[in-house]
Amino acid sequence: MSGLGKNKPKGILLEGWYATVDDYAICGAWNPNGTILVVGDSIGGIYGFEGKSGTVLWEQKRTHRDGLLCMAMHPHENILATGGQDGTFMLWNAQKGELLQEINLGRGWVDTLLWSSDGQLLAVSIARRVHMYRKDGSEIWKSADHPSTVSAIQWSKDNEIATACYGQVAFCDASSGEIHETFEWKGSLVSMSVSPDGDIVACGSQDKSVHFWRRSTGEDSMMAGYHGKPSALSFDESGRFLATGGGNSVTVWNFQGEGPEGTKPGTLEIHIQPITKLSFAHQGVHLASGARDGAVIVWSLDDSGNGDIIGASLVEEIISDLLWRPDDRALAALDAHGGVTVWQVGN
């Protein structure tokens, strides 16, 4: 990607700020009003950056013993949840970096955390289980062991979460943990994305395919032919497009009308290294893609799911996360080198 120029953003990506954390920047989150970007690194450092300038507002080092794995920002309040290899999740005040609560779930890695859209519930996955907590840190239920380690969780309805693991997707009642439905598939489901209306559940599989189910009809389909395992999946806010990684190109399935079965997907090609992260903007059809070589591209999709490049930049290393600010006027890229790059997004 020599034409892009290192650290010289093009198109709608405009110079913003750059900062570093101590190790591999694993995950991040914007606070609800977009004034703070929180970033976590692999050795358990958590950093609160002032959203506009990149000034460090607070930092907490070595929070999770053995490493941090995930974080989730409360949708309406400045409460951050983090999880790690120590089997613990922690709740933080995202403005000040103060630890509010620390809850240990036993042996295993806390792999994923997810707030409900009203912010009342926090779903936590550890090893083969899912636990449901209230905002105050009190536990509502914990699931029985899944057949294997839970690889992804997503809200499928207001009162229901979907869990993916090797061999199945299950739908659990958010207030009781009772399983409503399971879809079985002999394959290792490594990623999951649920359409905004909750009808379509798409999973990337280790065997280089994307499998999806329509809950309303019970139909399922498999999209094969990927060059790598599709670990990056993202639905746009309308539920029309599912962008999938897996190899160097982005494949966009269009769920409008009869599709995507039997239709030709959109293909976004410019990356020369495998895609590591895909993220749709909160509004509209702008899709950000990041790759192993640190390239970040912003695409504007047309009705067919094909798209034009409207922004591009290159950071140092493997892109680990791409985070649109809640107003979509800034985009943050985290990388394996510990880099935190934030671009302003122009028109």
Binding site: S148, T149, Y166, K186, G187, D207, S209
Partner: peptide, 8 residues
Amino acid sequence: DEEIFEMS
């Protein structure tokens, strides 16, 4: 924990 993943 050992987890053996077979493919479809």
